[in-house]
Write a protein that binds this DNA or RNA. Structure first.
Length: 386
DNA sequence: AAAGCGGGGTT
DNA sequence: AACCCAGCTTT
């Protein structure tokens, strides 16, 4: 491989260490650093396994490594191979995703496993498979990007890190590293900035000795050294090349993103427990349907019957009439925050006596089975801890 | 282009 | 309490 800036020109007249002219050096520094500093993570097997990469990348979207490690292991116990995942019921896949959030990722991952195992990617299989993995597993970023839930970042990641393709990758970590090194303002969320970032990432991966080491090294550098609030420039392999560092602007680049506006949601929950029949649960509407004040949040997840309002909490009377059960006078309250919502829960216990009154909705299920369902964290708290 | 989607780690 | 996280899909 060769650096695209083609070197003959010596240094630029300015004499400064310009990244465009030194992509080879920057890439080499990142690769050398990562070869020494890489954390041992469960998906960093040697050789890399495309299925493990697919699962880990899905879990890692907008989710920190420390949150993923344990869940990754549990997931693989139940779905050790892509064939096992493809053959699974979606309800089990979602259940294994419980608490991780962004539940569409679980559906997409499941669909991607099915697509690979169904041979839909067969045209990319040029025979050179190792027999360990599904023969149809796509190897190029452009083919990987056709899988559900696999966007530009994930496609570039699997293609380069697992299969060694010279394809770039930009995630939040890489964006921060590149913006700082170049001393450039902007966010990955800006179109123009994103285009610029992907171009810089491409320059580096073209200049790298190992696309895998470079790309994973850039991410690791962003996570471990070039961190958002307190970058550890003293131990950074790119410190000498970093423009933000030279200008003392590490803390200001990138500028904070505009805050997402939070909307309020009020949930009146009925917790009905009958020693003989178990607890009353219902399933939220699934992926396409998603109407109502909560949009598509927690689509398809299970819950104790929950009455939602956008403006105020449902009253005890409203909840009682809605569920058609006799409920206790007082509720237990807690708040649950997400990026876009503040959700206020009021949990009303129902008196499920011998009256034979039939609740207006939901079905009875044993507590043991409920614990195995796909539950959001607040609903797990209600159903399993209250 | 912007909104929507979970939940928690870090500072 | 901000700000962010190995982003993607839908509107």
């Amino acid at each position: 491989m060769e650096a695209r800036e083609g070197g003959g020109a010596g240094g630029p007249a300015g004499g400064a260490l310009r990244l465009g002219a030194s992509s080879v050096k920057v890439a080499a520094a990142v690769e050398a650093w990562f070869a020494e500093a890489a954390r041992p993570l469960p998906w960093r097997t040697s050789p890399r396994d495309p299925y493990l990469a697919l699962v880990s990348e899905a879990m890692l979207q907008q989710t920190q490594v420390s949150r993923v490690v344990g869940r990754f292991a549990e997931f693989l116990v139940e779905f050790p191979t892509i064939e096992a995942l493809a053959a699974a019921d979606e309800s089990r896949v979602l259940a294994l995703w419980s608490g991780l959030g962004y539940y569409r990722r679980a559906r997409s991952l499941h669909a991607a496993a099915k697509a690979v195992c169904a041979g839909e990617m067969r045209e990319t299989d040029k025979g050179d498979t190792d027999g360990r993995t599904a023969p149809a597993f796509p190897r190029r970023a452009d083919e990987l990007g056709k899988l559900p839930g696999v966007g530009p970042y994930t496609a570039g990641s699997i293609a380069s890190i697992v299969f060694g393709e010279r394809s770039p990758l930009v995630d939040g970590n890489v964006a921060r590293v590149l913006l700082r090194v170049h001393g450039r303002e902007g966010h990955l969320a800006d179109k123009a900035t994103a285009t610029w970032l992907w171009e810089r990432a491409d320059e580096l991966v073209q200049a790298a000795t190992s696309p895998a080491l470079l790309n994973e090294g850039l991410m690791e550098l962003g996570a471990m050294v070039c961190s958002p609030a307190s970058p550890k420039c003293a131990s950074c392999p790119l410190a000498k090349a970093c423009r933000a560092r030279a200008e003392g602007r590490q803390r200001e680049i990138p500028a904070p993103r505009p805050r997402a506006k939070q909307r309020d949601l009020y949930c009146g929950v009925v917790l009905a427990h009958d020693p003989r029949r178990g607890v009353l649960v219902e399933q939220r509407v699934g992926e396409p349907g998603g109407k109502g004040v909560a949009g598509r949040m927690w689509a398809g997840m299970w819950q104790a019957p929950t009455l939602e309002r956008a403006d105020r909490a449902p009253t005890r009377d409203e909840v009682g009439i809605w569920i058609n059960l006799d409920i206790e006078p007082d509720a237990e309250r807690f708040e649950h925050g997400t990026t876009h919502r503040r959700v206020f829960f009021e949990v009303w216990r129902a008196r499920v006596g011998a009256g034979g009154i039939k609740p207006a909705r939901g079905r009875w299920m044993s507590r043991a089975k409920v614990a195995e369902l796909a539950l959001s964290n607040p609903q797990r708290r209600i159903l399993c801890e209250l």
